[in-house]
Design a protein around this nucleic acid. Structure first.
Lengths: 196, 196
DNA sequence: GTCTATATTGCGATAGAC
DNA sequence: GTCTATCGCAATATAGAC
């Protein structure tokens, strides 16, 4: 097998297993069995289990680099916020494991948190903060908004919808078919509030 | 040592260690050493590591039973929502480990999820849904709100503020002294929206 | 109720053959 | 680059003494 084929296969399998049971819940024996290769391949290619985990993390959070895309358009602040909501929904839909690494690292950080996870999250938040500040300075948004709090509010709404899936799937459909309704709904609450 | 003293001591130590490194990240050796007792005490009192973990989970989510308190008052729907925000903030302040079990079980459920965690979360959500429905039927809230989506929005805002602490502590203060400002802020966004 | 001692299994890492 | 075989250690659980 080609060197990169095996590397990618191991990363792909490790992504699923680490997501499902955490770094300590998976042995390199199980990983190498699932990949159909010898246990020694993990040390050879990644320098050990932690090295493999760090490669998985790096791939998971590499998608955060493309957050700039929501900011490129010559659009209003509100349009950019909707673009952010769409961007984050697409990411969760394309990668159902991301939220597990995200919450796991935020609540039980490994040694890789500050190098991989923290910068990725901070970048997204800083871009959103600038969008809110832009809206405030152009008199679109209320003057008394705290930009960071406001960003955490919108990010929290969207992320929690996915985080709560297991506990709320009997109350509400989490199917992608409802995504457009959801986006409209969250944009309404975020812009107009819930009062009639 | 009295039987219950030892049980409580083990649960207390296990709560911290399981929160910090997860079920698979802690050995019963380390647990019993930290408690200053023999390793066999864990099997004797809890039937093994998983039994101890389930006792920890049960204690963590027992606080959810008191959610009714926010609903007892003869108050408006909006007042009850503010009471919920306060209730959830107090819980996170009093127990910094709760969020770790909460997110860990939602993204990597153990065998205890459906018995302990799911009912606790669902109870809170159902009470909040009824509050939103009450506000809608009394013409306080917009008619076109989906109650469950709306509940997840407010729960997401507050919980994510705490979840994101590690990644945002350089952008914003998470000190309890700011809690009142935060409550006002989130209530404003949730009721009036961000538009000026 | 608590301890020590031990049985058994599984872990991560690596030396050395090919 | 990949494998087999193995080392040394740590895991959970429990038998039996007190």
């Amino acid at each position: 097998m080609d060197k990169n084929d095996l590397r990618n296969k191991l990363i792909s399998i490790a992504t699923r297993l680490f997501a499902e049971r955490g770094l300590n819940g998976v042995s390199i024996r199980e990983l190498s069995n699932a990949a159909g290769v010898s246990i020694s391949m993990i040390s050879y290619h990644f320098g050990g289990k932690e090295g493999l985990y760090s490669s998985v993390l790096q791939e998971q959070f590499s998608s955060f680099e493309h957050i700039e895309e929501i900011n490129n358009a010559d659009a209003e602040a509100l349009t950019k916020i909707e673009a952010y909501i769409r961007w984050i929904i697409v990411r969760h839909r394309n990668n159902p494991y991301l939220l597990r690494f995200y919450t796991s690292e935020l609540t039980n950080p490994t040694q890789f948190f500050s190098l991989i996870v923290q910068p990725a999250i901070e970048k997204v938040i800083q871009i959103l903060v600038r969008i809110i500040e832009e809206g405030i300075s152009k008199n679109k948004f209320r003057k008394d908004l705290n930009p960071v709090d406001t960003v955490l509010a919108i990010a929290g709404m969207v992320n929690y919808y996915f985080l709560s899936t297991l506990a709320t799937q009997e109350l509400i459909s989490h199917s992608p078919e409802r995504d457009e309704v959801l986006i409209r709904h969250y944009m309404d609450i975020f812009t107009k509030g819930i009062l009639s």
